[in-house]
Amino acid sequence: MREDLLNKLREKHLQIALDFIDLDIAYEIARQTRDLNNVIIEAGTPLVKSQGIAGLLKLRETSKILLADTKTADAGDVEVEIAWRGKADIMTVLGIMDDSTIESAVRRARELKLIVQADLIGVKDTVDRAKELFRLGVDIVGFHVGLDVQKKRNITVASLKEEIAEVGKSGLVSVAGGLTPNSIAELSDLPISIYVVGGAITRSQSPRKVTEEIVNILSNTTIPRR
């Protein structure tokens, strides 16, 4: 299953970030999109913290691929097990943390057949650290321009095209940070496997319609060969 999913992720996917505390709201958005292909449902960090394993299990009912955005900072092996008990396929670690945390998560994830994504939020030298993370066994590296940074520096993930192109030569790449249908179209020529969209979908009056629009954009593009 793990290897099959990694192969599947070589196609372009949309990841819907459900950054809620209320499980009912998150569940309803996920439910509306459950039949669409190449969609990952993300239990956002606030949801994982507020709803725990039970919340993950509930979202599992709506998703073909489930990501638990644990943003693990310590005890990597333990937090992998939390994601596994919630039947997630992918969990996240903070790429800025000590290598021992990354290695602990990777080791336990391999035992439990989960995929590990490292989040580059807060990492200053993204290219070098991303390459190190791949060497440590991480499966996906995520470029993430956090909301606070977007507001303070007036940048989005689209500002990182050169870094994304370079890191994409080494492995699977995810991008997050204020993405919309328009900005996704602008990034479609980059080696990106996963486009993470939150507010453009979750704050829309028609989450299903926006999701379909993005899925259609991605279905008409391919990931450049490395």
Rank of each mutant, 00 (worst) to 15 (best):
S104Q: 11
L6R: 04
R10M: 10
T62V: 12
I90N: 09
G86A: 07
T156L: 11
V145Q: 07
V196N: 14
R225K: 12
L94I: 09
K49C: 01
I192Y: 03
F134K: 07
T101F: 05
M91I: 13
T101P: 05
L36F: 06
G178A: 05
L147S: 13
R208I: 01
L47R: 02
L47S: 04
D99V: 07
Q15S: 13
R10K: 15
D125M: 04
I53T: 10
N38M: 02
V141R: 03
I16Y: 05
V215K: 03
I201Q: 11
G168I: 04
H13Y: 15
T202P: 09
L147E: 14
L147P: 02
L5C: 13
I121R: 06
A200C: 09
T33L: 05
T180L: 04
T126G: 03
I65N: 04
T92N: 10
R203W: 00
V175H: 06
D35C: 01
D22E: 14
G95K: 08
D74P: 07
R225T: 12
L18I: 08
S183A: 04
S104I: 11
D77T: 04
L187A: 07
V197Y: 01
S174M: 10
D74Q: 09
E103S: 13
T211N: 09
Q205R: 07
A158D: 10
V116C: 13
A54C: 00
K161P: 07
R2W: 06
L187S: 06
A105D: 08
T221N: 13
S63L: 12
V215C: 09
Y195M: 09
G44Y: 02
I155H: 01
I90F: 04
K169R: 15
G199L: 06
R85D: 08
E28C: 05
T222L: 04
I115Y: 06
L190P: 04
D139T: 10
N7S: 15
A75S: 13
L5I: 15
A158C: 13
G146E: 11
Q32I: 00
L172P: 06
R110V: 02
